[in-house]
Design a protein around this nucleic acid. Structure first.
Lengths: 187, 187
DNA sequence: CGCCCCATGTAAGACGTTACATGATTGA
DNA sequence: TCAATCATGTAACGTCTTACATGGGGCG
């Protein structure tokens, strides 16, 4: 009943809260770093934090100390960490690819810290496996489209294919990085 | 007052409606082709169509003919075509890149049919120009991150960089395609 | 006749956006 | 003291998701 469904922003917050932070800290991460795809507006973040707390995934504590501004620091509960791990380690489906890669990359970015390097490798291999048939269908679509569609439509599809090819190459590269790293010293 | 703000789905519908279609036809496009990023659920499409009609951008006509199922065919009004063109030809900003490329690619995909090959070329050049500084800041972020972040976080950022590099290469390629085409015969 | 696909729609709820509001603290 | 920033929130609004509902028409 509790963790019914968590939106992408919720998982982004859970991942970032592996390092305890205030709502304002989190907003700054979203607004200043490369995570601009997520909303940095207070109207999104604070309600999301409240929901996560109601689900028992995080816990906030108002910071004590005399001359300080009121500031609530949130941190993961054990239940929250478990949920984060579960999300990260769930296998990558073709829907994950079709609905854009934001979610997948978010999972990967958090994987090493939250679960471990083995989990990162697992995601990469799962991604590689899901990518191959997906690329195949896109190439077929391109062939089917070649006759009818205008140049711009065809090129747009080619762009998608190229970016998935780049993703594939990256996954390959990342796998070698991890395999080398774990061979040397898996810590 | 009228065309206050149109969400991405609305523009996707406008673009597809350059070819008159029913709501069901549009749903099939979203569910069957590579446009799976947009919702194919009736609860999204039909209200969106109604809104576009209320704004005077499209007009629906119930299909006549004896033995037919009730079927409403929508088509663009001149105002709708104008709005579509305006959207397509507006310059590409860095926010367009930061918030993902779905929108930009959608504009490009429709550009040739809606406005003309010159507009497609314009988008590509605008994209190329916006891409360069964006890539630069991403590379700087990677450098800044190298010391602190875990491998997976760094690799995730590298993935983003690589995909933007692929986009850049694609834009270059697409520009040559268009320049060759217009040189030969701009129709 | 019953089943599945066509084709359209609605209702409840969740979520994000935008805009506003509040107060405390720092620095000029 | 005045402005800017820190830090948190709330309210209205629009949109998407999910699920349900409705009926016609082809097909075995």
């Amino acid at each position: 009943m509790n963790t019914s469904k968590i939106p992408a922003l919720g998982y982004a917050l859970l991942g970032l809260l592996m390092k305890p932070s205030s709502g304002y800290d989190l907003r700054k991460v979203f607004s200043s770093t490369s995570m601009k795809t997520y909303s940095d507006s207070p109207g999104a973040i604070y309600p999301a934090l409240r929901r996560l707390q109601e689900q028992g995934l995080i816990r906030g504590k108002v910071e004590e100390g005399s001359g300080l501004r009121r500031r609530q620091i949130f941190r993961l509960t054990s239940k929250g960490l478990a949920e984060l791990k579960k999300w990260i380690t769930s296998p990558i489906t073709r829907e994950d690819l079709e609905s854009g890669l934001r979610t997948v990359m978010l999972r990967f970015a958090f994987s090493e810290t939250a679960v471990g390097a083995a989990a990162s490798l697992e995601i990469l291999k799962s991604l590689e496996a899901a990518l191959q048939p997906h690329l195949q269908t896109m190439r077929e679509q391109l062939q089917a489209m070649k006759a009818i569609a205008p140049t711009s439509g065809r090129l747009a599809l080619e762009c998608g294919i190229r970016s998935y090819e780049a993703l594939f190459a990256w996954a390959h590269y990342a796998i070698t990085v991890y395999e080398k790293q774990m061979q040397g010293g898996p810590s």
